[in-house]
Simulated assay, not measured.
Amino acid sequence: MLITVIVCTRNRARQLRNLLESFLALDPPAQAEWEMIIVDNGSTDDTARVIDEFGSHLPLRRVWEPRAGLSNARNAGVAASKGDYICWTDDDVEVHQQWLSAYAQAFHRHPDGTIFGGVVEPVYEESPPHWMVENADKLVDVLAKRDHGLQECRLTTDLHLLPYGANFAVRAEEQRRFLYDPHLGVSPEQKRLGEETVLLVSVASLGGAHYWVPDSRVRHLIPTSRMTFDYIGTYFQSVGETWAYLSTSDGVPIMGQPIPMYGRRFGGVPLWIWRQSVVAEIVYRIKRTLRPSPSRWLDDLINKSRLAGARNFLWRHHRSLTQIKTSN
């Protein structure tokens, strides 16, 4: 068995170095060989030099993908992979010593498995603010926290059980049947989410099994910059933009039911979205002014940000379609 590990990165040489240092301590997988692919997605910092430094210590190779975007980088990694299984992690994590060996053992135990996921544990750069700890249940997606318990087991493919991008594996035969959508995933031009979830839903539709592998663990490093209300707002704007994009493209509804496009519109945006987004903004501002405790208005921040993200995407999408029609 050959396992391919893929990491996509762009201008995060410091974080990548930290990740690769954790790979040096990996237990080698039993009854399996492995390769590592670092997809350099157009970096202009020291990323190439960092990869070269670890080249004599790890079975890695660099794949250059100049087209910016996480989905483009993921697709380049899959195209270059040779493994029977593909393990994914991110450049801002530290892998546990048993991360890869636990997956290898699970692959042997569960030949019917096509999707595997492991623990993602948030680790904070500094002590998180009280409001973040108090509202951790509302911020699970923001922190990419995933933990389904200590027992290895078969899971359903419900959305809330699927693994996060920081720690998952897919059998290569199924992985290669689907591309990651370049219109999803973070890039300099867009801040959309969910490219891996949409792909996993497609893989799950083929009927294979989904297994939880608790001994495969990563520590997701949360910088101080992500422990702010501004970041929470930006994240949920991305959720709203993703929701709107999937609604206009008949995509997999991972962000909820598609946006109803009934009734009158202004600038391509249904009037009900304009109305709800304005009301949500006003409610948020009033509550934040009158109620100092973030627990009293965090839901309002999330709601108004999500609606604003959806509204702004639909507005831009309409303008883009109008420009295309005009040019033709």
Rank of each mutant, 00 (worst) to 15 (best):
G267T: 00
D300I: 00
P292H: 14
R296W: 00
P292K: 14
Q276S: 12
R291T: 08
L298T: 01
L290C: 09
S293L: 12
R275C: 14
R291K: 15
L307F: 05
S277A: 15
W274G: 06
L271W: 10
R306W: 03
W272R: 09
W297L: 02
A308D: 14
R288H: 09
I286D: 07
N303E: 11
R288D: 06
A308G: 08
L307S: 04
V279G: 04
L290F: 09
W272P: 00
R291M: 13
V279P: 01
G268E: 06
N303A: 13
Q276I: 00
W272M: 04
I282M: 15
L301V: 00
L298D: 00
I282A: 15
K304I: 01
R265P: 02
I302N: 09
R296I: 01
G309L: 12
I302P: 10
L301Q: 02
T289Y: 14
I282S: 13
D300G: 01
K287F: 10
P270T: 08
W297Y: 10
S295K: 12
L301C: 05
K287I: 05
R296C: 06
E281W: 12
Q276G: 09
V279N: 09
N312Y: 07
G309H: 07
K287A: 14
G268M: 05
W272C: 04
G267I: 03
A280Q: 00
S305F: 02
G268D: 06
I286F: 13
A310S: 11
A310D: 03
S293D: 15
G267N: 06
N312V: 07
P294M: 08
R275N: 14
R296E: 13
R306C: 05
R296T: 05
